[in-house]
Design a protein around this nucleic acid. Structure first.
Lengths: 161, 161
DNA sequence: CGAAGATCGTTTGAATTCGAACAAGAGCCT
DNA sequence: AGGCTCTTGTTCGAATTCAAACGATCTTCG
């Protein structure tokens, strides 16, 4: 009693053992690592991970400045979350807002000197964690493969919406 | 003017290009995929990803039941977040609470029939997303390597605290 | 047995997230 | 120019997260 429609709707491609194991481990690792990083950053500098991400992205941008929307895209947070976090970072003097010369609506998030120094102070301890739990546990070949796999997925996800 | 102490504190092992690319892609992918999954689950069944995770873990446990603390560990959420989510799921009848026979303090989260049916209904669409953006984009060998890498990291993170 | 300390799940309060709605400005097309 | 439509960043409200504090129960060890 099957036809192409019921087939299409009904046939689920479940995950085999290898796929399931990979997906499950990926999920747990992402959450666990996030927790660990959050803990380290909070203890070391009172920063959250999204805040740290913002500083990192700004520090890599020309002039230490970026448009809000672009920054939000880079950090993979909503625009409203970025507005909130930039306000927080402004309060503690790590970031400033500047108006955009080329677009009257635009706002630039600008890394301050204090922000750059904070990042330089915090980065080593942060990288320590990333290394200790992820990077240093993988062989060069594993690292290459993981990197390639993640890039493919990232690209697909950024293209989709 | 260096000694072993300043060395130890000062020498930061930065990430080389390969390491940086892998880490950055991992981070972005985790966030993007999370967003995409959240969107799909919300649209398909009004579930959040943590809620779906709870249903999945329960469905895989003997008797469809698990202790709160163990479930929280499995899902990688705080105990208070789990308390909140189980209450939510109870409201819509997908999960029930039961008292634990062996421990008076204990609480068992139990998957209801409705919960099991909901999961069966939602799983295909969810897996579609996981496949479309991650699993099906990787070669069997890549998948194996990613799985192994994630398991190593997960294990390290679960052992640490 | 009984006291000290660990563990269990919940409650509480603060912080953060998201999407939707909004006003202001840019861009396009004729 | 002028009207449409898209984009920008912010604001709002609701939902969710976490850690810390708590009362209740278990466990261990003297």
């Amino acid at each position: 009693m099957n036809n192409i429609y019921t087939e299409a709707v009904t046939d689920t491609r479940w995950l085999d053992a290898t796929e399931m194991a990979a997906w499950s481990a990926f999920l747990s690792t992402a959450h666990l690592l996030e927790r660990r990083i959050e803990e380290q950053l909070k203890a070391a500098a009172g920063l959250t991970h999204p805040q740290y991400e913002i500083l990192v992205r700004l520090s890599g941008a020309p002039g230490g400045r970026m448009r809000m929307t672009e920054l939000a895209r880079g950090c993979v947070v909503s625009k409203s979350a970025l507005t909130y976090q930039i306000t927080q970072l402004e309060k503690v003097g790590l970031v400033e807002r500047a108006s955009c010369p080329s677009d009257e609506r635009g706002v630039l998030a600008v890394l301050t000197e204090a922000g750059r120094h904070c990042l330089e102070k915090v980065a080593p301890g942060h990288l320590e964690v990333v290394r200790a739990y992820l990077i240093d546990r993988l062989s060069p070949e594993e690292l290459r493969t993981v990197g390639a796999a993640m890039r493919k997925t990232e690209q697909a996800l950024r293209a989709a919406p």
